[in-house]
Design a protein around this nucleic acid. Structure first.
Length: 573
RNA sequence: GCCCCUGUAGUUCAACGGAUAGAACAAAGACCUUCUAAGUCUGAGGUUACAGGUUCGAAUCCUGUCAGGGGCACCA
């Protein structure tokens, strides 16, 4: 398949250059031109607006369009190029070529719609990156689905992609986890344990720790009675990661690399970053920041009371305040390793690093960007997708999520109640910029309210035709695709947009586009299924063969679209 | 107070500065001897929160106002 808009844009630019060379158009720098698929029947299959040329050319744009229409070297797949007031140029695909694309689609198989743009380039997508303290909850799920789908789309665009999970198994939260497991362990042994206030505050109440404790008792009996929290922490961490990986696997997500934040301490990467920032003049030691940005309730006395910390002059890059790199206790904050981690990414030579974060981290990534810029890196190589928060709705009411309180809705819960496919689709089919209301009642419903069924049903219906055709001995041998009609062509036109959907998703880092595309495909498909019969008594054999071939192409497009979304491709439903 | 995101049909959401703002669901009415009705067909539904501005052209860009969400730690 070819990227038709890109090809046609090139063709139009060549025509304009030729017109300028011949003096039919004055010389001027061409502004950006965008050929895109047309929205409306009657306006061609692809079109471009040339009105922007009117001013630099000092000519009527409709005249320019006419000139270009005459000049343009039509590729073999274009039947007609037509100028329309006030300055549009519409392209009509050649129908014979269009019908023949059914074979081209089938021939591409698993890599259908693959692009050349990422060839030879390496991309990394970092997503999920939850510390192993609790099962994945819905808030993380959105980033997980968006990240993995982004990775799949980058692969389709030709990139070699690595999926990475960044985590920290040190720190107070993990200590609390170990301690919580220890308490559950004692409980499981029937030993009462009275928590002190600090413990109660940091206690992880989730049932998963009861399960871990029960397993631990089964494995080691009471021999861990006198062990400290470290042993329990380690045990909990291993179990937690098993659980997280298993959950992710249910929605077909696998990370290639698990990057432990601790290695940045051990390797001296943190110190190196600090030293480089210092040498560049972005570091100072003080009890209070030079710039505090006027945050509310900002109690300088409180900060000053903590002693001298090491600060990064983030405010030099537009940040309202400077940020602490090393606490007065001598421990780095998470910001320092975060910057060191991104330095590490860029040093690994990725051409592109995509980072999927929740909206609550959006200040943090600005600081990381500033750090990279201060160190002389091209911060634009790191692209951050901020996914807005997910609200769970049940019975029209917002369900509160809190991993500490243990009343959260986990990704596992959600999958249990719906299906991996429904979860993937519903979390994907929204722009990352918008808040997502996840209606649990709706997701639980197995009805056509849920577009996931509608899309998969198209794939299933194709499979049904193939089964029945095989049973009746009908084949597509020697299919004459020229026999296909207007409805099939309508589907094929949309099918040919797959490469541009992939290209746009990657260009704008908007993986939700594939979800809407798949739904549009299904919307076009189902009416065709009803009206374009393969096995009807009144369908001549030659027509049946052509239609059967068409449905093979249709199924291939659905299969590819579903796989790009990480969804299954059922044969029956 | 400052920063980020959002405001589009009854609802959930699309629409990379281009032509008549699109789907799905809900609500109204028709279709199953026919490759799966988890489907199809027919209508209806809009001052794109509001006010200015830029532009040949604005849902989209800019400014302001209002409303909702998230953030503004020597927590991660």
């Amino acid at each position: 398949m070819i990227l038709i808009p890109v090809e046609l844009t090139r063709v139009v630019r060549e025509a304009l250059a030729a017109l300028q060379a011949e003096g039919k158009l004055p010389a001027f720098d061409l502004p950006a031109l965008d050929v895109r698929s047309s929205k409306r029947a009657g306006q061609g299959d692809y079109s471009v607006a040339l009105m922007g040329l009117a001013k630099p050319a000092r000519m009527n744009p409709a005249q320019i369009a006419v000139l270009v229409a005459e000049q343009v070297m039509k590729p073999d797949y274009v039947a007609k190029a037509e100028a329309v007031a006030p300055g549009y140029l519409n392209f009509w695909l050649d129908e014979a070529w269009l019908k023949a694309q059914a074979d081209a689609i089938i021939a591409e198989g698993e890599v259908l719609g693959e692009l050349a743009e990422g060839q030879g380039k390496r991309a990394q997508v970092e997503f999920v990156s939850a510390n192993p303290t609790a099962p994945l909850h819905i808030g993380r799920s959105r980033g997980a689905i968006v990240g993995d789908t982004m990775a799949r789309l980058l692969e389709a665009a030709g990139y070699a992609v690595e999926r990475e999970y960044y985590f920290n198994n040190a720190g107070a939260q993990m200590r609390a986890l170990g301690n919580s497991l220890r308490i559950r362990y004692l409980e499981a042994l029937g030993l009462p344990y009275e928590m002190i206030d600090d413990e109660r505050k940091s206690f992880y109440q989730g049932n998963y720790l009861k399960d871990f404790a029960a397993q631990l008792v089964a494995e080691v009996g009471d021999s861990w009675l006198n062990k400290g929290y470290e042993a329990f922490k380690l045990y909990a961490e291993v179990k937690m990661f098993e659980m997280i990986k298993a959950t992710l696997a249910r929605v077909d997500i696998q990370h290639d690399v698990f990057f432990n934040e601790n290695t940045l301490y051990d390797s001296g990467a943190n110190d190196a970053v600090l030293e480089r920032l210092d040498r560049a003049g972005y570091i100072y030691r003080a009890a209070a920041p030079e710039t505090d940005g006027g945050a509310p309730d900002d109690d300088d006395a409180k900060e000053a009371g903590k002693g001298e910390a090491i600060w990064f002059r983030s405010s030099r890059f537009g940040d309202p305040k400077d940020r602490v790199m090393v606490k007065s206790s001598g421990e780095p904050t998470y910001t320092l390793p975060d910057i060191a981690y991104h330095v590490n990414k860029l040093e690994r030579g990725f051409d592109l690093a995509v980072n999927v974060l929740g909206a609550d981290h959006n200040t943090q990534y600005q600081v990381v960007r500033n750090g990279l810029t201060a160190l002389g890196y091209d911060a634009d190589k790191v692209h951050v997708i901020i996914v807005q928060l997910v609200a769970l709705l049940r019975g029209g009411e917002v369900v509160r999520m809190s991993s500490r309180a243990g009343n959260f809705e986990t990704l596992d819960d959600l999958i249990d109640q719906t299906s991996p496919d429904a979860v993937r689709y519903m979390l994907l089919a929204r722009s990352s910029d918008t808040h997502l209301n996840f209606d649990l009642d709706l997701a639980v419903k197995k009805s056509n309210d849920n577009p996931v069924y509608y899309i998969q049903y198209a794939h299933v219906r194709c499979a049904g035709i193939f089964r029945e055709a095989a049973a009746r001995g009908v084949t597509d041998d020697g299919a004459d695709l020229s026999l296909l009609g207007e409805p099939e062509m309508r589907f094929l036109r949309k099918a040919l947009e797959l490469p541009e959907v992939i290209a746009d998703s990657v260009e704008f880092f908007e993986p939700h586009r594939i979800a809407f595309y798949a739904l549009e495909l299904a919307n076009i498909f189902h009416p065709i299924f009803d009206s374009v019969r393969v096995l009807g008594v009144d369908v001549p054999p030659e027509l049946a063969a052509a239609r059967l071939r068409f449905f093979k192409a249709a199924q291939a497009i659905f299969r590819r679209s579903l796989r790009l979304m990480g969804m299954t491709t059922p044969e029956v439903m």
